[in-house]
Write a protein that binds this DNA or RNA. Sequence first.
DNA 1: TTCGCAATGTAATATCATTACGTTTGTGAG
DNA 2: CTCACAAACGTAATGATATTACATTGCGAA
Lengths: 137, 137
Amino acid sequence: MSTGHHHQPIDLTRNQSLVLGALEKAEGPLSAYTILDRLRDDGFRAPLQVYRALDKLLGAGLVHRLESLNAFVVCAHPNCHAQGMIAFAICGTCGKVDEFSDAVVQERLGSWARENAFKAEKSIIELRGTCAGCLNG
Amino acid sequence: MSTGHHHQPIDLTRNQSLVLGALEKAEGPLSAYTILDRLRDDGFRAPLQVYRALDKLLGAGLVHRLESLNAFVVCAHPNCHAQGMIAFAICGTCGKVDEFSDAVVQERLGSWARENAFKAEKSIIELRGTCAGCLNG
DNA sequence: TTCGCAATGTAATATCATTACGTTTGTGAG
DNA sequence: CTCACAAACGTAATGATATTACATTGCGAA
Ligand SMILES: [Zn+2]
Ligand SMILES: [Zn+2]
Ligand SMILES: [Zn+2]
Ligand SMILES: [Zn+2]
């Protein structure tokens, strides 16, 4: 089941596949408890089953966590983990999330870290607003 | 009590002043419940007292919310709300938070939004890592 | 004074996440 | 094959964060 293309490739277990599938089917981000509800019929009973699967999927770069939403979304790119920095544009109206990256932003934040002797391990960039579809509709 | 310098100046109420004072005294970010605990002696009893004060302080730009920590920190700059975009470097070891801004980052994220017809209302930029002090010490 | 609004007090509830502990399953050494 | 170990799993309990609901108070405008 592993693609062999990921930074930390893994063969997904049943629970991990179910959680990933739930996120792939969803049109937007899901909270852990929403995932749990959607997997009741598959035998899920407790939050920890979801959180444990999410931990693995996050580690493999297949899923991202949206900090400002306390929710999770499937990675929009085949191998986006190769790109260092990821940003999200989150529509507050329809809930859609657009994943993108910007080399200049990455470079500038990296520069700030160097200049301030800050060892950055992870960056969180989230834009909250309204998407094109919701502005027009 | 108003400084008259803020975008949405307010005369702070007693509760708001107490919450702001707790954040100013703290060496780093505090959760709402930690603030509540520190204000027990001042008559605070319920989370809502803290959240309501925080709402006002956030609106006035006197306090920032750190999304990746679910915590709050006093604004490090006199009138930082004048700068559109704020970023935070958060040390996972000592908990210190460094607030900064970068015009290039702001411009690039603004460009992305324009190109994608996304109306950004708020941006969240948080670097997680280790600060200079913790790396050396 | 009377109205209207912002702020407050309090309780209950909703939502998000982790700890604890025991069991099952897969895997490789011998 | 059997044992030993590690990873994953099941379940319950608890902890942490945030909001809803409703009654009350303080205060300025009409
Ligand atoms: Zn991705
Ligand atoms: Zn939208
Ligand atoms: Zn600030
Ligand atoms: Zn530090």
